[in-house]
Amino acid sequence: MQMSREEIMETLRNIVLSADSIGKSNLPDLREDLMLVRDLGFSSLDMLYMAVMIEETFQIRLQNLSELNLQTVGDVVDLIHCHSEMPKEQSP
């Protein structure tokens, strides 16, 4: 069953919280328009960590992150949302 964007955001927030190197001060207001690098201070290592945790938590396989040009939290939610969609013929 497809997750809502709110559910995805909550799980993503926990993933970002668990990344040691992310500044904690922005997280109570994790919004989709926040820029990963500029607002959350993501390094390349943080992106890799987040991608691994997304794959493991949501049980999805992502294509190479460097090819996706993820800029904002919303881009990440879109990506997860897209991968978590059921094929149309299987939807209830």
Partner: peptide, 9 residues
Amino acid sequence: PDSPQSIVH
């Protein structure tokens, strides 16, 4: 690997 984030897998 095809992508670095699949390392756990």
